[in-house]
Computed example of a mutant assay.
Amino acid sequence: MIISRKHLAKAKLEKIKKGYSAYAETEEVAQWIEKELATMDIPVHIDRTPHGYWFIPEKQEG
Rank of each mutant, 00 (worst) to 15 (best):
E61M: 04
P57K: 05
D47G: 03
I56R: 10
E58A: 11
M1P: 06
T49V: 05
F55C: 08
T26K: 10
E34R: 15
P57N: 11
I2P: 10
W32A: 01
R48I: 09
I42D: 03
E25F: 10
A9L: 03
E61K: 15
K59V: 15
V44F: 07
V44S: 11
E36N: 14
I46P: 00
L13E: 01
I3M: 13
L8R: 15
T49F: 02
L8V: 04
P50K: 12
D47P: 00
H7Y: 15
K35L: 10
F55V: 06
I3P: 02
V44C: 08
K6T: 10
S4K: 10
E14L: 11
E27D: 13
K6V: 14
I33D: 00
V29R: 00
T39C: 01
A30I: 03
Q31L: 12
L8N: 11
Y53S: 00
A24Q: 01
G62V: 11
Q60W: 00
I2Y: 11
Y23P: 01
Q31W: 08
I16K: 05
I2C: 05
Q60E: 12
I33Q: 00
K35M: 05
L37T: 04
A30M: 06
E14I: 14
L37V: 05
Q60D: 12
W32T: 03
F55Y: 13
K17T: 07
I3N: 06
H7D: 15
E36F: 07
L13T: 10
K6W: 07
S4E: 14
I2F: 15
F55P: 02
I42V: 14
E28V: 07
D41A: 09
I56V: 15
I42C: 07
P57E: 03
G19S: 12
W54L: 08
A22F: 04
H51S: 08
P50G: 14
E58P: 01
I2E: 13
F55G: 03
I2Q: 13
P50E: 14
I33E: 00
S4N: 12
V44R: 05
G19V: 10
A24F: 01
E25Q: 15
Y23E: 06
G62M: 08
H7A: 09
K6G: 00
F55H: 05
A38K: 12
K15A: 15
R48A: 12
D47L: 11
E36I: 05
A22M: 02
T39Q: 12
Q31D: 12
A9N: 02
G62E: 10
P43V: 05
D47H: 14
D47E: 14
T26V: 05
E36W: 09
V44M: 12
M40T: 01
I56F: 03
G19W: 06
G62Y: 03
M40R: 13
Y20I: 01
A9D: 00
K15I: 02
